[in-house]
Nucleic acid binder design. Sequence first.
DNA 1: TTATTATATCAATAGTTCTTGATGTATGGA
DNA 2: TCCATACATCAAGAACTATTGATATAATAA
Lengths: 110, 110
Amino acid sequence: MDKNNALTAFSALSQETRLDVFRLLVKAGETGMSAGDIGDTLGVRQNTMSANLAILARSGLIRSKREGRSIRYLADMDGMRGLLAFLMEDCCGGQPELCQPVINELACVC
Amino acid sequence: MDKNNALTAFSALSQETRLDVFRLLVKAGETGMSAGDIGDTLGVRQNTMSANLAILARSGLIRSKREGRSIRYLADMDGMRGLLAFLMEDCCGGQPELCQPVINELACVC
DNA sequence: TTATTATATCAATAGTTCTTGATGTATGGA
DNA sequence: TCCATACATCAAGAACTATTGATATAATAA
């Protein structure tokens, strides 16, 4: 993960539809969802959703798998991990107790 | 943390100077850095940096403390925790093992 | 008070991003 | 082959964002 990857990822998450999509796919887990179902669930037009899914996919936060006529999208947890690691690199000026609560909060929602 | 807070935060991190500032302040830890030192370190003009610091502060990712003529900025780890918790809410379709690696990666850099 | 240092705000321009209608491509069924 | 379904791409206008020079404010020192 370099700086440009990170910028692309944060930019991807800074738009309402794409943030909704990512959170929906986080909830969906390994199963993921088809592009059409995502669009229907969020009430977003086909071409708008397709453009936004492409942006999320390019950012490394989601991946896709063609299944017949549909394409299934899934949250990419490796991409997410890389992003957080980049962001928190050398964190807290050598005082881990400052960012430990971040980790704890994350742990408890899983 | 609601969706608008999250969008504001990701938008704040999606611009190069602001991402640099946040990572610099993460490294600086509790000590933080003055606005001027941040600008000098990153080679960004005064008014541009001021505008970018204001955006980061409004996003809840950094906070500030006036000290005489200077203003000291610090990464806000509570804000960061809230953002991650929002993003990972109800994650992994009930299968915690999928996002545990994210947490582990974070843990080891502290 | 006047000057200096440190930072913030303003208004305008330049650049970027979003959405949309229209159209293209891929897959599978009749 | 022809059609329907599922999704992607394109071009253009609208909306948003970033940077800049100029200026304002806040704290302090002379």
